[in-house]
Amino acid sequence: MTLLSRRSLLAASGAALTAPLAMPALGQGNWPNRPIQLIVPWGAGGGTDATARIVGSLLERDLGQPVNVVNRTGGSGVVGHSAISTAAPDGYTIGMITVEITMMHWQGLTQLNPESYTPLALMNSDPPGVQVASNSPYADIKALADAIKARPAGTFKASGTGQGGIWHLALVGWLQAMGLKGDHVRWVPSNGAAPAMQELAAGGVDIVTCSVPEARAMIDAGRAKSLAIMAPARNPMFAQVPTLNETLGINYSVGAWRGIAAPKGLPAPIAQRYGTALKAAYENPQFKEFMTSRGFGTVWQDAAGFASFMAEGDRAMGEAMRGAGLARG
């Protein structure tokens, strides 16, 4: 540990040494003049990684410098989010932050919160679906909801991510909206959506609340079916799946979002340049086409909109997590 702190001291002194070198470059307005790092807190090949890579490739064309996607994984996203916020705010390190930034600090995992960043743009949001095994006796969400209400607490088991993760909160929020307690359905923590879907297909759990794109392979394989999504409107890629509102009259929606942010203190001219580049990337048909083909939802918020979106999300998450007894400290 002394080793690490010594290292960070040295790194800090190194940054202090190089910072004056970087400043004149900014003044000259020739940013960017070297490759940019785009940090992703999740693993290579996953949904966040794929979104970051397509955004990165479009930014690269716009800014004229390579944009390298760097995966910093582990700790339920803490490692990568921390790497983004502690990088030098010189415009050469940005990152894709995800909904976890509004959740982890309530759980007491980190001090980081939306305030730790310079928000640049919100690009994507995916609502959770309610998935059951294809041989499940519940043909629609109504039948499932009635069964959950009728049985004693703990009869049903659900999975989708770790304890206190976004899909856990999705379940909790849905149960609360139905007037039940957050733990009426027992949560079985899993290491992500894919193992949870396997558990569902193997008959280990009754419900998986993860996004429909994550459940897609199992649905296509005829092993699972999606009963509803917790969103204001249907997903055009999965148009046959109804929303909670139209079936149960519950207006509850939540989502796993992804956006681009920089370390706090990014100079305003660079932030503005990123704003226009990201807007162009978002409007690029290539981005739209890629996101649609994977079933990912696209949403746009500019820097200011993203900031207030996160602030609102952070507040709502805090409330939901305290309500569910998932908040700590």
Partner: peptide, 19 residues
Amino acid sequence: IDPAAGFPRFTFDDVNLMG
């Protein structure tokens, strides 16, 4: 981070060890 409660174990408040 432990698989049951999502509590960081033996991390000594170091971000990297959380991974």
